[in-house]
């Protein structure tokens, strides 16, 4: 095992080096990251005691070392952990953000894995966004399905996969804002990370299962997970509404911005093509909306945007429907048992 290999393995996806981000983009993400970190520092200061400082430091070292643990997949590639969702689920959101930020910062400083100016963006993608997905999505889902062991595992997988996808999407977005072509960046990043995310999900699930069965006290004392009362609470309408709203907001924002930012009219079309590719495995990509423009709006950027939004809405509706079906099933099995 040598250190350069580790760096190489990580470089593939998400650690943006310097030189790739334009200065304004890098600065915007610095501002966002500083805001998130300030909030996390404040909340950690309120909620936790000084005992957490060595804990979080050692946990950062743990995530760093955990990223070295890999398993062979296919043709010399290997799966390994990013760890954001796991950190969120094991440590809670605020400590998770700080731990992951420390990991990303150390990787940049010690191994030049990710640039100095790009730390803002990298910390946000891998430290803030992954943890946010792990927690914001994990908590409501956990309240819905978490009473059962399989529920926890399912949630671990979903949040881990989505956190990798979120990091990949954000990375692509930043690169596209910096002038790279959306036509190639989005499909490439999303395609690769859809698979990396599966590895992440599997590892996260197994790690969670192991910790939960070996030392449940660690997990419950840290984040209130597996706490029977907390798990029994029904999800209130407001949480569902909030999650829906935030998700739709992000989707709409992405749809609005990507064709404009890239200056590349077919950018969104290719993303859509890629999504189609992922969903239907090589099926003809344009069946719902031909050529990804809405016919009556003509060949304008507006049309591309509208098409993108419609596509995202359909995707969202599908996911939401799936969630409802699954929840219906889980409550059935609960009443039966």
């Amino acid at each position: 095992m040598n250190w350069q290999n580790i760096a190489d393995g990580l470089v593939l996806g998400l650690h943006i080096p310097d030189g790739f981000l334009s200065a304004p983009v890098a600065l915007i993400w610095w501002v966002l990251t500083i805001g998130a970190l300030a909030l996390a520092v404040q909340r950690v200061g309120v909620e936790l005691n000084e005992r957490q400082v060595p804990l979080m430091g050692v946990m950062a070292a743990f995530i760093f070392a955990g990223q070295m643990l890999n398993f062979p997949v296919l043709g010399g590639t290997s799966g390994h952990l990013l760890g954001g969702a796991l950190a969120a689920l094991l440590l809670g959101p605020w400590a998770g953000v700080l731990v992951m930020s420390a990991v990303v910062t150390l990787q940049a400083l010690l191994f030049q894995d990710g640039g100095l100016l790009a730390i803002g963006a990298n910390v946000f993608n891998m430290g803030v966004a992954t943890v946010a997905i792990g927690y914001l999505l994990g908590m409501p889902l956990l309240r819905t399905f978490g009473g059962k062991r399989w529920g926890l595992m399912l949630i671990g997988f979903i949040t881990a996969w989505l956190s990798v996808m979120a990091a990949a999407l954000l990375t692509s977005l930043q690169l596209v804002f910096s002038g790279l072509s959306a036509t190639v960046v989005f499909p490439a990043m999303i395609f690769v990370h859809a698979f990396i995310g599966i590895g992440e999900g599997l590892i996260t699930v197994a790690a969670l299962a192991f910790v939960v069965s070996t030392r449940p006290d660690l997990v419950s004392s840290l984040a209130g997970f597996l706490n029977k009362e907390a798990l029994q609470q029904p999800v209130d309408k407001r949480t569902i509404g909030l999650v829906t709203f935030v998700g739709l907001g992000f989707a709409a924002l992405a749809a609005l911005l990507s064709p404009l930012a890239s200056g590349d009219p077919d950018g969104l079309e290719r993303v859509a093509e890629n999504q189609g590719f992922l969903e239907r495995a090589m099926d003809a990509p344009y069946t719902i909306i031909p050529d990804y423009t809405v016919p009556f709006l003509g060949e304008t950027p507006l049309s591309t945007i509208a098409a993108g939004m419609i596509g995202l809405l359909i995707l969202f509706a599908l996911m939401y429907g799936l969630a409802l079906v699954l929840r219906g099933r889980s409550s059935d099995s609960r009443t039966r048992s």
Binding site: P54, L55, G57, F62, F71, A206
Partner: peptide, 25 residues
């Protein structure tokens, strides 16, 4: 299978977490 291999790594990560946690204590 790949799933099995991933589960092995996951348990290693879990073990590492517990060791790290106990070390921090």
């Amino acid at each position: 299978s790949i799933t099995w291999r991933a589960a092995v790594v996951g348990r290693m990560v879990g073990t590492l977490f517990i060791r790290a946690y106990e070390r921090s204590e």
